[in-house]
Design a protein around this nucleic acid. Structure first.
Lengths: 177, 177
DNA sequence: AAGCGCATGTAAAGGGTTACATGATTGC
DNA sequence: GCAATCATGTAACCCTTTACATGCGCTT
């Protein structure tokens, strides 16, 4: 049920249409919480029925702008403060690691080298994003500050997984810790 | 479709029943890839239809032991080697961080202190598990070695998230890097 | 004989993805 | 007039969770 609250969170920032929200998910939340437009439009209808959002105005091409209500805002905040965090990982790369013994050392090394490269690249792009935000490229609004924090998590997790992939590689000795 | 391959991977180790597999998911994969028994029984039926597993013998109370076939083993290995890794995070704590700006500094600090404590505790239990495996408590089979590698990923990720929660805490100055 | 753990399954509902379908507006 | 983009929606399917249902075998 996180999509619901993610939508409310985005609408807490500013009114937006289903289309806008779909794009924001794509750009901003794509790697953390993917959501396609069918899911978003469906959830918006439910949020409206529950009084958490209202149609604020209509634009060209049947565009509908939604605005968050007071009860909607209270609901996101309740989620953040009171609802238990779901700490499940569900990272496919971790699941795969349970079965590494089914691979030959060479197959495993090839696999882990690809993984390490992937994570190092991703870490690099998170670092760039963080630097841009620190530099004030996106201003210093509270929202930007939150995204800076998210980027920091991205950096730390991808670095952790990148160095792990090197550590686990049977072909490279333990230079990487 | 990872459940399918996770089941094959577990059966590659030794024959087991749906019940056995359910327990193993609970103990071993609970935090990485949760799966309840209805899902497991359903998937076992499909795997059998596809010839990846066969019923090896029946026990008391209608127990059915499954054994992996050659095509099944080839299929897990194909998955590990050829199928693209799904790198999606879908970590609720990260999604939440996008909306931290909706909280007061005190609310955020309380939240992050709980998170930090949670991750430190989890990191500790991963470290214990890793130490036990290094100590040979579970022998030194290939399977155990793989699990040692998984545990290492667990340590690194939970430490990363724990230190991140401290770093992001507006109440504590940046002692934690 | 009661209670617990083993063992299997189905049904319903929810969450998420992919494919299909439609049409308006803008820019060239 | 044509193409790209904006914009909404439905349908079908798959994956996952929760609740319901049943019965055997072992221990006390």
């Amino acid at each position: 049920m996180s999509l619901r609250h993610a939508l409310l969170g985005l609408l807490a920032e500013q009114p937006a249409s289903g289309w806008d929200l779909t794009r924001r998910f794509d750009e901003l939340l794509g790697s953390v919480w993917p959501a396609g437009h069918p899911q978003i439009y469906g959830e918006l209808r439910k949020l409206q029925q529950d009084g958490h959002i209202v149609v604020d105005g209509e634009g060209p091409r049947g565009r509908k702008d939604y605005r968050i209500t007071d009860t909607g805002l209270a609901e996101v905040r309740r989620w953040l403060i009171e609802v238990d965090v779901d700490h499940t990982f569900r990272l496919e790369p971790l699941l795969r690691s349970v079965f590494f013994w089914l691979l030959t050392p060479d197959e495993l090394a090839d696999y882990l080298e690809r993984e390490a490269a992937f994570y190092h690249g991703l870490a690099q792009s998170f670092r760039k994003l963080a630097a841009a935000k620190d530099n004030g490229d996106f201003g210093f609004t509270p929202q930007t500050t939150s995204l800076r924090t998210t980027a920091e998590a991205g950096i730390r997790i991808t670095e952790a997984l990148g160095s792990w992939a090197e550590w686990a590689n049977p072909r490279s000795p333990d230079d990487a810790v």
